[in-house]
C-alpha cells in the first residue's frame, strides 16, 4: 500500500521542486564548500609552517652571529663554525654521540628482536597482548624519570643493582656505575637501550606479524629446518621493517638528552657528554647562543642524512597511497 504511494510520488516527482531548492545552501556555506580544501589545509599548514620556519631561520641567523641570550647580535660570518671545528669538546661529544648511538641502538635492537620473536611464538592473542603491554610499560616511562630511577638503582651505596651483584657473589665491592668514567658511559648506553627496546619490539613484532603463515607451512612441506626457515623467510621479510626501525632508533638515540642528563649530567669528567648535552650547556647554561646555534645546525645537518634515508624508504609507499 505504502509502496504504491511512494511509487506514485516517485513517478510524479513530487520531491522535485523541494529537493532542487534544498540544493541551495546560502552564500557563506557555498563559499566554504567551494574552498573546502583551503579551509582545512591553510590553518594547520600556517601554524606548522610558522613553528618550523620561524625557529629554523632564527637558528641559521643566530649561528652566524656572536650572540648571547640577552643583548644585540653581532654578525661574525662562519666564525662560530670555525670555532667548533677547532673545539676538542665538539669532537669528544660527537664521538660519544656516535658510540652512544651504535651501542644503544644495537643493544635495543637485539633486545627488541628477541622479545618480538618470543612474543610472536605465543599462540594466544590475549597472552601476546599482555606481554606486549608489560614490555611497553617501560616505553611509557618519561625518559628523564628513566634516567633518575636508574641512577638510584645503580647507586654505589644503596643501589639495588650493586646489592644483587654483591649478594650473588659476582663482585666483592660495590661498583660506582655512575662515578667511574668508563662504567658511566656503559651505564648510559644500557639504560638508554632499556628505554628504547620496547619501541623496537613493537615495530619488529608488527613486521613479524605481516609474514604470512602459509610461507612457513610451505617451507615445512619443502623440508626446511628451523634455521633455514628463519634465514629464508623471517629475515628477508623482516628486513624493510627492521631497516626503518633502525633508522628511527638511530635518529632518536642521536638526539638523546634526558636520559644522559638525568643519569650522569654529562659527567664524570665529560665521559658521557654527547652533542645534545653540549648544545644545552653552551646555549642555555653559558648563554653562548651563537655557538650553540651553530652546533645545532651541524647536528641537524647530520640528522638530515638519516631523515633523507628514511624519507626515501617511506615516501614511495606513502605517496603511492595518495
Amino acid at each position: 500500500m505504502a509502496s504504491e504511494n511512494l511509487l506514485d510520488s516517485v513517478r510524479a516527482g513530487f520531491g522535485r521542486s523541494s529537493s532542487r531548492e534544498d540544493g541551495e545552501i546560502g552564500p557563506i556555506r557555498e563559499f566554504i564548500n567551494d574552498h573546502f580544501m583551503f579551509f582545512v589545509l591553510t590553518p594547520p599548514l600556517l601554524v606548522l609552517g610558522t613553528l618550523v620556519l620561524l625557529p629554523s631561520s632564527y637558528l641559521l641567523w643566530s649561528s652566524v652571529h656572536e650572540a648571547r641570550t640577552w643583548g644585540p647580535d653581532v654578525f661574525v660570518g662562519l666564525e662560530n663554525y670555525i670555532a667548533i671545528f677547532q673545539d676538542p669538546m665538539f669532537y669528544l661529544s660527537l664521538r660519544h654521540s656516535v658510540m652512544y648511538v651504535i651501542g644503544s641502538v644495537s643493544l635495543a635492537f637485539v633486545l627488541g628482536l628477541t622479545a618480538a620473536l618470543a612474543i610472536n611464538q605465543v599462540a594466544s592473542k590475549r597472552i601476546r597482548s599482555t606481554f606486549t603491554v608489560l614490555i611497553l610499560l617501560a616505553w611509557a616511562v618519561p625518559l628523564v624519570v628513566t634516567g633518575l630511577i636508574w641512577r638510584f638503582m645503580l647507586h654505589s651505596d644503596y643501589g639495588i643493582v650493586n646489592a644483587l651483584l654483591v649478594q650473588l657473589g659476582i663482585v666483592t665491592e660495590q661498583i660506582g656505575f655512575v662515578t667511574d668514567p668508563t662504567l658511566a658511559f656503559l651505564s648510559v648506553v644500557v639504560v638508554d637501550a632499556w628505554a628504547r627496546a620496547p619501541f623496537a619490539t613493537i615495530l619488529l613484532l608488527a613486521g613479524l606479524q605481516t609474514i604470512p603463515e602459509d610461507l612457513y607451512e610451505a617451507a615445512r612441506v619443502d623440508g626446511a629446518n628451523f634455521f633455514q626457515k628463519f634465514r629464508d623467510i623471517t629475515i628477508p621479510h623482516l628486513k624493510p621493517q627492521a631497516a626503518i626501525a633502525l633508522v628511527i632508533m638511530c635518529m632518536f638515540a642521536f638526539r638523546t638528552f634526558s636520559v644522559v642528563f638525568a643519569l650522569t649530567g654529562g659527567g664524570p669528567a665529560n665521559s658521557t657528554r654527547v652533542l645534545a648535552t653540549y648544545i644545552y650547556q653552551a646555549g642555555i647554561n653559558q648563554g653562548d647562543v651563537g655557538y650553540a646555534a651553530a652546533l645545532s645546525v651541524l647536528m641537524i645537518a647530520m640528522t638530515m642524512v638519516f631523515i633523507t634515508f628514511y624519507v626515501l624508504q617511506v615516501q614511495e609507499d606513502a605517496l603511492d597511497t595518495a
Binding site: 505504502a2 509502496s3 504511494n5 511512494l6 511509487l7 523541494s18 529537493s19 534544498d22
Partner: peptide
C-alpha cells in the same frame, strides 16, 4: 542533509524499505 522534516523522512524510509 536536505533538511526534510523528521516525520516525512521516516515515512519515505519506511515506504522504500517496504518496496
Amino acid at each position: 542533509v536536505r533538511g526534510m522534516p523528521k516525520d516525512e523522512r521516516d515515512r519515505r524510509v519506511r515506504e522504500s524499505a517496504e518496496l
